[in-house]
Design a protein around this nucleic acid. Structure first.
Length: 276
DNA sequence: ATCAGAGCCTGCCAGC
DNA sequence: TGCTGGCAGGCTCTGA
C-alpha cells in the first residue's frame, strides 16, 4: 500500500524515463477514475512532461508550457493498490487487468495507471497555480517535517496522536504503516492525546518520522503485505517493520508481546512497555 | 472538535 | 472443490 516512500520511489524511477518525453496518445479506459476535465488534452495528450513532483502521497506530472499557455498538471493518487508503471512496449501490458489509463510516448514507451481497488485516481488541473492551491491543503511533507510543525498543527488538539499523524493536513504522506512505526521509534503510545505531548517528544516524533520514511525509501519502499523479491525472499522494508503487522509478536526492543487495537478505524500495533 | 461508522472496491485467506 | 465472510486500507461523508 503506497505511502510516501513508495510514491517517492515511483517518482524517482519515472523521472528519467518521462521528463522531456512527449505524450502522443492517451487512452482512458474508465472515466470515473478522473476528477475534473476528462478530455485528452487535460490528460496531457500532446504535451511534454516537464517535471514530476510529489507532496505526501500525491504525484503530479507537470507539462511544459506551450507559448504563453502554462503547462497543465495531472495529479495521480495511488490509493491503496494503485500502480504507475512505465513499459518499454505496449505488448508488456496485454495480460494486465485493471489498467484504467495509458499514456503512449513519442518514440515508444507506455505509462500505465493500474488500480484494482480503485481507491486511487487522477485529477486534471489547468496549471501549476491550481496544483499549489490543492497542495496548500496538505501539511508539510513527511520528509521535511519538524517538531515545531507538528506541535503547531496538532499540539493543542484533543485527538489521539496517531489520528493526527494520519491526517494529511497535519503531515503529508503518512499512512497506517508508518504511523505505527514512527510512534514506536519515538516511544510514544498511539493513544496519547496530542495536547499531552511535550515539546521534546514532538521533536523526537518528527525525527522518527523522517528516519522511518528515509529508511523505507532507501529500501526501495517495498511495504506491500505479501511482498517478496525476485528470489522469493521477503523485501527489506517489510522485514524492517518493528510493529506493523506484528500484533501479539514480541517487541524487537524489549521482547514483550506487542498489543493490537483499532484506533481511528485502523489496526494499530504498539508496545505497552516501550511506548508511553 | 473529535469520534465511530459506513461506503467505496477487490484480492486474499481461513473456515466451513 | 467451492462458497462465504472477514479483513486490509486512503479518503470522504454522515451522524453522534
Amino acid at each position: 500500500m503506497p505511502e510516501l516512500p513508495e510514491v517517492e520511489t515511483v517518482r524517482r524511477s519515472l523521472e528519467p524515463l518521462l521528463v522531456g518525453a512527449r505524450i502522443s496518445h492517451v487512452e482512458l479506459r474508465r472515466d470515473d477514475i478522473v476528477a475534473g476535465d476528462r478530455s485528452a488534452a487535460a490528460l496531457l495528450e500532446g504535451a511534454s512532461v516537464a517535471s514530476i513532483a510529489r507532496r505526501g502521497k500525491q504525484l503530479a506530472l507537470i507539462a511544459g508550457a506551450e507559448g504563453r499557455r502554462p503547462g497543465r498538471v495531472l495529479v495521480v493518487h495511488l490509493g491503496m493498490t494503485g500502480q504507475l508503471v512505465h513499459h518499454p512496449s505496449a505488448r508488456d501490458l496485454s495480460a494486465s487487468t485493471h489498467v484504467h489509463a495509458l499514456w503512449s510516448f513519442d518514440g515508444g514507451g507506455v505509462l500505465s495507471f493500474r488500480d484494482p481497488r480503485r481507491f486511487g485516481g487522477l485529477w486534471t488541473l489547468a496549471d501549476a497555480t491550481e496544483l499549489r492551491a490543492r497542495w496548500s491543503l496538505l501539511g508539510p511533507d513527511g520528509l521535511d517535517v519538524t517538531g515545531a510543525m507538528l506541535r503547531e498543527r496538532a499540539g493543542e488538539s484533543g485527538r489521539a496522536v496517531k489520528a493526527a499523524l494520519l491526517d494529511q493536513g497535519v503531515v503529508a504522506g503518512i499512512g497506517n504503516i508508518y504511523a505505527d512505526e514512527s510512534l514506536h521509534r519515538a516511544g510514544i503510545r498511539p493513544t496519547r492525546l496530542c495536547r499531552r505531548i511535550r515539546g521534546a517528544e514532538w521533536e523526537s516524533l518528527a525525527a522518527s518520522i523522517v528516519g522511518v520514511l528515509g529508511s523505507a525509501i532507501r529500501a526501495g519502499g517495498s511495504t506491500v503485505r505479501d511482498y517478496v523479491g525476485g528470489t522469493g525472499r521477503p523485501g527489506a522494508a517489510q522485514r524492517a517493520h518493528a510493529v506493523y503487522g506484528r500484533g501479539g509478536e514480541p517487541c524487537l526492543t524489549c521482547g514483550r508481546p506487542l498489543r493490537s487495537m483499532s484506533l481511528a478505524q485502523r489496526t494499530t500495533v504498539w508496545c505497552h512497555s516501550c511506548q508511553r
